[in-house]
Simulated assay, not measured.
Amino acid sequence: MPHLALIADDLSGALDSAAPFSGAGKVVVASHPSALGRALRVHPDVVAVSTRSREVSPDEALARVRSVLLQMPTGTRLFKKIDSRLKGNIAAELTAFEVAPLLVAPAIPEFGRVVVDGRLTGFGVAHPIRVASVLGDHATRARIPDVQSDQDILAAIAALAPDEVLVGARGLAHALRASMPGAAPDIASLPGPLCFAVGSADPITLAQMDALRRHHPGLQVIEAPSGTVPDGIRTDAPVTLVQIVPGAGTARDEVARRFAKGVARIVSDRGTLLVSGGATAEAVLDALGIDVLTIEGEVLPGLPCCRVGHRRIISKSGGFGAEDTFVRLLNMTRLQESTDHD
């Protein structure tokens, strides 16, 4: 059985919380609950799964988390991955863990998100958020330490009880990984061509795209109104940015599916594909027929990298990364080796 199971409400969260464990054994991610059985059959040391429950009703979110817990082998340490800015159906999903005590630590100190006096604040958080208020009735069984540094999270983990459920984001995962043997792999370069598929409209991601445009004037930019990727796109461009932009009113799920089909049509079956936005990542992998991924490591902090055939797939949550994140990925890519069969 896996030593650790991470349960996230979207795919980018499942990937970025599982990625720190690379090098400590086989790390496998299921992109939806029905793929979890296949992920477990490869005997991972760490397994993560997306319940795809960020945008559904609280009752449906609870049902999906319960369905995942029913599939988990008894004795597996549980980690409920939550959004580092406390979005989603957090209180509803924690109901699935019944009366188990909770260690709740959403902070990511390396990204400037901290918990001070019980309130989440810092980079990307518009106003301080009282963590206990997001937990609802579960706050009475939760330990919510103040976290302003990695040392604070390590101290919280040192006091972890055997039945305590970990509840947090990448910062908590990274601290837990520090107690395990094995070195994280170094991913020094990426194969070309490089495609950025962006569904997130988070200001952090928008700034990253602007920096990429300024740095690389030869960038092929494709705008997809309401997710519609136009025909006649050059599929052999060294670097492509395809982005959802506003269009005629359409349901969010349909926009993501439409966009994913367009991305699948234009992206190479080799090279590197970065997908930004949890719902976008799920839809793109569905369109590509991929539902179980093995994580190779992190190409940059918070950016997990998976190998699927000759293709690398990188996921980035909308609110993650410095302004030069996309530029750094471009600089790591071997654009003259687009025919690389590594």
Rank of each mutant, 00 (worst) to 15 (best):
L102D: 11
L103T: 07
L120I: 02
S133T: 10
G124C: 12
L86H: 02
A92K: 05
R85V: 11
I129W: 01
T95P: 00
V134K: 02
V116G: 00
G112T: 14
L135D: 10
A107G: 04
R85G: 00
A132Q: 10
T140H: 15
F97P: 00
K81G: 02
G122Q: 08
A91N: 13
N89I: 04
D137R: 15
I90W: 05
E110I: 12
V114A: 11
G118P: 09
I82K: 07
R119C: 12
A126W: 03
V104I: 03
V131R: 08
G136P: 13
H127V: 12
D117L: 06
V114W: 02
D137G: 11
A92L: 08
A126Y: 00
G112N: 11
V104D: 09
V116C: 09
S84Q: 02
F97N: 06
E110Q: 12
L94D: 04
D83H: 03
E98L: 09
D117Q: 11
A105Q: 04
G124Q: 10
V134N: 03
P106K: 05
A91R: 13
R143W: 10
E98Q: 15
R85T: 12
E93V: 10
A142L: 12
R143T: 14
V116K: 01
V134W: 01
F111L: 11
A91P: 08
F97V: 07
V116Q: 11
L86T: 10
S84V: 00
P109H: 05
T140Q: 15
A107N: 05
V114R: 11
R130W: 00
L120H: 00
A100S: 14
I90R: 05
F111R: 07
E93L: 09
